[in-house]
Amino acid sequence: MLDRLKDSLDLSVFWEYRVILLSGFGQNLSIFLLAGILATAIAFLIGAARLNRNWFIRTGALGYSEFFRNTPEYVLLVWVYYIMPILLTNLLKTRFDLSPYAAAVLALGVAYSGFMAETVRAGLLSVPKGHVEAALALGMSRRAILFRIVMPQAVRRMLPEALNQYVSLFKATSIVSLIAVEDIMYRVSMVNVDQMRPLPLYTGAALFYCLIIITASQIIQRLTNGWRVRGWA
């Protein structure tokens, strides 16, 4: 077993194919960034809608976020990849094709918008009611209160949790290989087909992700601790 262990940790094959693997990783990164932007944008809409005065809007937003928080990302990914083109083709009356890349961004963005909407809502709620009352007492309009008093504070308060969500999103980008996006896991299995050395390749992939996620988490921890100490978030 010891020499098997040595083989697993023999990352030379990783190094040999580093260009291919890293460019695959570039796909993960870009999907992560685009999906993250999409998720954040939707999250602000839905999170604010959760606190709207209108019952229908509130419940609709609740339904949205509950649906996407409780549906597996892989199911959404496959659904978007297979079914969106059909729906859009029928709707737009022209042939519509969704590239795996676009399907991945859309599916992951929407999947995590549910989680982030909750984060946004919690952030908005965490602004003390008294601050809003003081603004009301001074005669400020609701719009001014939202943008000048509530938002600045809410964004700071939701940042730690939001960063954690982004880390989860990044981990989730690993599944895009399953709809043939040429990301790092896809490239790893390609290299495996070529080299027939699953031990170092898959171990290497695990360690690679491990390294990145742990580093990112540590940085986020330091940042948020610093913020908390300074009374920011």
Binding site: R4, K171, N192, A205, C210, I213
Partner: peptide, 25 residues
């Protein structure tokens, strides 16, 4: 604990399936 939380499930799945039989039996 850090390893388990930092690696995506797919990566863990593939690792356990393709590496463990050779490594651990």
């Amino acid at each position: 604990i850090e390893f388990c939380r930092a690696t995506p499930i797919l990566v863990q799945l593939l690792w356990v399936n393709y590496v463990w039989p050779d490594l651990f039996g």
